[in-house]
Structure formats: structure tokens, C-alpha cells
């Protein structure tokens, strides 16, 4: 496929070109040190060089809060909300975040396919961009590299003074058509190395987790963890939710709303009557990590973690999932080495 050179000074006109075709969502600065995907109104405020966004693009397909239905208490009837495809261009997506979308696609299509998610997902186009691993990224350990264009419609490979642009799908080609760029014929420079790694591949991890249930790491970690649920809330592959009814103060109408939920919180597994099935923080931490590397992974053959590093970067105690997994790997290897 042909690659084109998008020089730094042409990025804004390139975004304007995309805006003529569909709504564009891209990373923007949020707060002091953070980034977030927002709809582009001013192309100059788009940040293509960013570490990671607070939330992944998951928030567009599974909104943090979402109305499942609205109801009337006067006649006990309900109405469906309208769910429209997001049908937009997602610009500046990192490879791990697109892989996370594909994992959610799996979760919402298998078994009982969910209309809300799948409907919103229609028409989304992804324009990727190279990322520079910071101290928390470890996606290389789960097979996702900064220049992985897998699944993208268009990818912007970081090169000197700009980006080498390549379309990978017909939809991607049409995004580029009509935008003047010269061809780029050099090699793409190798992406920067990761600063942290999980030592073993998923194939081996399944075995590690077979022997990790009683590892002391769960208890140790639970001393630092306060169970705030942040790691769940920022995870691009977490999709658990709770559903609650809200009633207007007139007590005549209301809505049934779902919102993201966190298995790290105590009341997540609480049933009516007060029994809590994962009462200990250690058990909750274990459940979270098993969900990322064992439970779904055994069924799909893939890790359900994309190595974005959000859970650690956002944790006020800086509990590292990489350190947890590596400790399990280490203990597993020591236990399985034949005695001399």
C-alpha cells in the first residue's frame, strides 16, 4: 500500500478534511496533566502526541451513563430510548485502545448480543497514531505495539516532522481521497521500547493463573488497595454495569439508567439481605486480575488486558498490575522448577 507524508504543519488541514466527512473525535487536553477524547470543534486543540486518555473510546459505544428505558408512573408504561450509531471518525486512537474495542465487540456480540452497544458501534472509523510508551504502558507484553495498524482504517505512523499515513480499508482510502499529500517512501522508524514488561506470553499465563489462587500477592496488595474502583472505571476492557431507576421529583416519570460499575467495590457482589460474596479486598483484586488474564482468556485464547497502563497510572496507591502478574509468574516458575 502507498504511504503518504503528512507534515506537522498540515495536520490541522488534514483534520479539517476529515471533519468535512463525518464528526471527528480526538484527544484533547483535560485538566492539568490529562487527556480525553472529545468531539473536535477546533482542530488546533487536537493533541495527537499524548500519553493516554482518561477513558478509552469505549465511552462512545458504552456511555458511562446510559438510559435503558424511560417510564411513566401514572400509567406504568415504558418507552424505548433512541440509540443511534455514533458514525464518526475516531482520530488519534492508540493501538491498544482499538484492540480493546474489538474485545468489547466480542463481549457484546457473544451469547446474547446487545443492541445498544452494537448499534452505537456502527459506522465508526478509526484513524490510529503511534504512541511513545511511558512508564506505565506495557501493551507490547500482550502483543500490541505502538505501530500496530491492525484493524485501523487509517494509521498515522510517527516519522520525523510528521506522520506517514497509510489507509488499510476502502473506507480509510476514501477518508484520504481528495487530500493532497506526497508519497512517503522511507522506512517507518522502529517504535520506542516499553519501560515495563510482563515476562511471559498469554499461552503460559493461563498455566500461571492455575496456580495463583492462593498466592500471597492478593493479601499483600489488599493492604495498599482501598477498593475505590478507579482501576475498573478507567479500564478499556471492563464492561460491568449496574442498573438503577431514577424518578423525577414530580414522581410521575423516570428512567432506568445503567452506569459502569466496579468489581473492586464491596457492594458489587452484595445481594438483597446483605450477603457479600467477595467481601475481602484481596478476593476482589484477584477477581479483577483473573478477569484480565484468565477467565475470558481461557475461552478466547487472548489476554483481556491491552496493556494501556491506565489502572496503574490512575491508581492513587500506584498498585501495578504488571508487578502483580510478574510476581505470580516468578512464584510459578520457582514452584515448577524441578528440585536439584
Amino acid at each position: 500500500m502507498t504511504r503518504f507524508l503528512l507534515t506537522e504543519d498540515k495536520v490541522i488541514t488534514f483534520i479539517e478534511h476529515l471533519q468535512k466527512q463525518k464528526n471527528v473525535f480526538a484527544p484533547h487536553k483535560r485538566g492539568t496533566n490529562s487527556f480525553a477524547f472529545e468531539q473536535v470543534s477546533d482542530p488546533a486543540s487536537v493533541m495527537l502526541d499524548y500519553t493516554r486518555t482518561l477513558h478509552s473510546v469505549k465511552k462512545y459505544f458504552m456511555p458511562p451513563r446510559e438510559q435503558l428505558l424511560s417510564f411513566s408512573l401514572t400509567d406504568n408504561s415504558f418507552a424505548e430510548p433512541t440509540v443511534d450509531p455514533v458514525d464518526a471518525i475516531f482520530l488519534g486512537v492508540h493501538s491498544y485502545d482499538l484492540q480493546a474495542v474489538f474485545k468489547l465487540d466480542h463481549n457484546f456480540s457473544e451469547g446474547n448480543p446487545e443492541k445498544n452497544y452494537l448499534k452505537r458501534r456502527e459506522g465508526a472509523l478509526f484513524v490510529g497514531v503511534t504512541f511513545a510508551p511511558d512508564q506505565w504502558h506495557f501493551s507490547g507484553s500482550v502483543g500490541i505495539n505502538p505501530n500496530d495498524a491492525d484493524g485501523f482504517d487509517v494509521f498515522l505512523f510517527a516519522v520525523e516532522n510528521g506522520y506517514a499515513v497509510e489507509a488499510f480499508t476502502p473506507a480509510g482510502e476514501s477518508l484520504l481521497s481528495g487530500f493532497e499529500m506526497s508519497e512517503f517512501n522511507s522506512d517507518i522508524p522502529a517504535a520506542a521500547d516499553f519501560n515495563q514488561h510482563i515476562y511471559v506470553p498469554q499461552g503460559k499465563l493461563s498455566e500461571v493463573f492455575d496456580n495463583a489462587w492462593d498466592n500471597e500477592v492478593w493479601e499483600e496488595t489488599s493492604k495498599e488497595c482501598v477498593g475505590c474502583g478507579t482501576c475498573n472505571m478507567v479500564c478499556p476492557t471492563c464492561y460491568c454495569f449496574n442498573v438503577e431507576d431514577g424518578v423525577d421529583v414530580t414522581a410521575t416519570v423516570g428512567q432506568r439508567e445503567r452506569h459502569w460499575d466496579a468489581c473492586m467495590t464491596r457492594d458489587f457482589s452484595e445481594v438483597a439481605g446483605g450477603e457479600v460474596f467477595r467481601e475481602e479486598l484481596a478476593a476482589r483484586q484477584r477477581h479483577r486480575v483473573y478477569r484480565k488474564f484468565k477467565y475470558i482468556s481461557d475461552k478466547t485464547g487472548q489476554p483481556w488486558c491491552v496493556g494501556c497502563g491506565r489502572c496503574t497510572a490512575s491508581c492513587s496507591a500506584k498498585i501495578s498490575i504488571v508487578n502483580i502478574v510478574n510476581k505470580l509468574v516468578q512464584d510459578h516458575e520457582q514452584a515448577t522448577v524441578a528440585p536439584v
Partner: peptide, 24 residues
Amino acid sequence: LERRMKCGVGKCGHCQINSSYVCQ
């Protein structure tokens, strides 16, 4: 077994016991 089957369709995660969804 009793768990918190919130959605009933294997999505919400509340009823999960290890890799098993109690609602499924």
C-alpha cells in the same frame, strides 16, 4: 446458587463466580 443476577443475560458481571456467569 444465589448471586446478584442484575442483567440476567450474561453482561453486567455482578453474578460472576470465577469464570462462570450464574445467570447463564
